[in-house]
Design a protein around this nucleic acid. Structure first.
Lengths: 208, 208, 208, 208
DNA sequence: GATGAATGAGTCTTCATTCAT
DNA sequence: TATGAATGAAGACTCATTCAT
């Protein structure tokens, strides 16, 4: 009567959530149908409503879970006992790795927040600002510790970097190529290099 | 007899295209309705079909126009008589500026290709590879001219950079703040800094 | 200011009517669009409304003209001074010839009456009964003159024959083959042969 | 647990198909709406799509089923051990009976093939040629057995006959009158009479 | 838990028709 | 006469959601 063997199999509900992530990633939330999700799970679409309340409910859960995981990354970095530059490197590394290990989830997380309801959209926006604030703080600390080029504008470095990381799922396909760890390392190095090597932009002009 | 007031009004068809870009940017292509576009133009939805063939047709045009503009940027850079590093700087600057001057269009251009038909999707993919190839070539030339750090992997720098630029529309709101030119300059400096300052990642490890 | 040269060119209005017949024949009235007709005439669809009141108006005229022509055929036969069998032969010949000379018109005439308004539909039905009555009278006269097989049921011969003639446009394509006159002659012979040679059907049984 | 009352109710899907035939017969395929079909079945129009894929799908099925039935008739005749003239009589009888027993279906079958897609239209055309070939063969065999008038042109007899049969649904209403079997018998006699009694038409002229 | 069937609102699209110019 | 632009109603089709069994 109870077919779930604890530990070996996640609940059917989690299957549904996972299927939703894949489908939302493949087609985009708006273009994906409940039917698509049901097919991937292997049930009829009516049956899904035993597990969920609504289509948006499915999306909600992607965000809830992802929020927890990103919070864990930030906490891990905060607790490090290391120079700011090392913390920065570590943050980029871990955050890259999360994107690479959660391609679909990460992609949905950064693309589909528009389709959440007002309340949760606000939550996402706050979360976003939290990342940004966290990264900007790290960059300013790095500057304060004399490890960053003088002219560096932490806000732009922050946006530049976060955007670059968000883009990971769009080109990375794990078909051969370097390991996720290697790529995360390369990304961390690039950010560190950028932080150390960037001259200031002169206001309004780019070329000499 | 001449209903066009020269200079003040573009054709109605262009109005429709512009409205579509805005709507697609605000809601996403799949969630946007033809009705939304019609309302923004100020006609009934049926009337739109006097100007267009289909909803997808509207999307098509965003891509056609954007392709032309991006081609122009690459050609301009190619024709420059300057060291590779300067060409790189210039490319990032111009490409950033295009994103900032065409926020909605750029955003749609990089988010909604999924909803084109197969043929045009292929064209987009080819175009994407063209950008990447162009940028990778530039980075390799920079390396060859001894202006890039030794360990730099042009492919990852390329993906990193293009993703960062694609992200511009998602955080930039032209409400106050720095000019588009200044931001483009800062982005160009960051890429140059990254290229000059990035050490190699050791395979599979990030720290130590 | 008056470009119509009497006699050499029919009025634009007739062009429109002719175009309509062709289009209605090709696509069927319901599936044909005013746009289709306009294209064949070479004007924009809005312009058609200078010549017509409505789409149904176009259909109406097909029927009006065809009615006149069929009336003329029946009158011609009535006025003949000949045995009933010869009148019958002549009617079938002329009626066949009309179908063959007015393929599109005839086809529309017999297929699209459903889409007329109630009043005109009634007129069509009356007209139909007139043909049938005319032909049945002819068949009965033939019987009375001893030229038809005894068991012949004029009503069924009538329906059989009219249906056969109505079918002419559906298989006849004037690409080579016999002349319309020859085919009309063959059809007339077939009806005459049928009238002379048909035995009675025994009620409810067909074989043995 | 078993909602089907054996014998009294066919599946809902068949109800839908039957309703479609009636509606297509009454209004014509192009003028009929899915709404009309839904109303006749007693569901909302959206619900129809649980049973069908498209409006054209509905039309398709009319043709599929009708094709099978017509094939069965031809096979039955082929297997007869009888003179060609008897086979001919039998074919006309059975084919007439099919038209009379399937008034709406037969009517749709011969009127609405235009609205099938290209592939199925081709199939219909091939099927049509099959009927014609079958009937022409029968007529030629009859001639070869000396049972047909010398001048008979099998092709025209064939077209004449098939058209006549196709017209059955357009005048026959089973409100009183003779039985379908009687009418089929009369039609068979008429064709036999025609075959035996028709003189040749002299090329190009009809009257002496 | 799961299914099959149905709902009803919404979407894209077509088209006959109108009308100012 | 003819055009370009617009209208508005209708039609095919989709889909999230519900619910009795």
């Amino acid at each position: 009567m109870d077919p779930t063997v604890v530990g070996t199999r996640q609940s059917r509900r989690d299957d549904v959530l996972d299927a939703a992530i894949e489908v939302f990633h493949d087609k985009g939330y708006a273009a994906a149908s409940i039917q698509d999700v049901a097919e991937r799970v292997g049930v009829l679409k009516g049956s899904l409503y035993y597990y969920i309340d609504s289509k948006e409910d499915l999306l909600s859960h992607v965000f809830d879970t992802s929020d927890e995981q990103s919070r864990a990354i930030m906490e891990g970095v905060t607790e490090m006992d290391a120079p700011a530059l090392e913390k920065l490197r570590s943050f980029v590394y871990e955050w890259s790795l999360w994107h690479l290990s959660n391609l679909e989830r990460a992609s949905v997380y950064f693309r589909e927040w528009r389709h959440l309801d007002g309340r949760q959209q606000g939550a996402v926006r706050r979360k976003r600002r939290e990342y940004e604030g966290f990264l900007i703080d790290l960059l300013e600390a790095t500057k304060a510790e004399g490890q960053a080029a003088a002219g560096l504008d932490p806000r732009y470095v922050c946006f530049f970097t976060l955007s670059a990381l968000n883009g990971l799922p769009s080109w990375y396909r794990d078909q051969g190529g370097d390991s996720a760890e290697y790529i995360a390392g390369a990304y961390a190095e690039m950010v560190v290099g950028m932080v150390r090597g960037t001259a200031a932009a002169s206001r309004g002009r780019v070329r000499g």
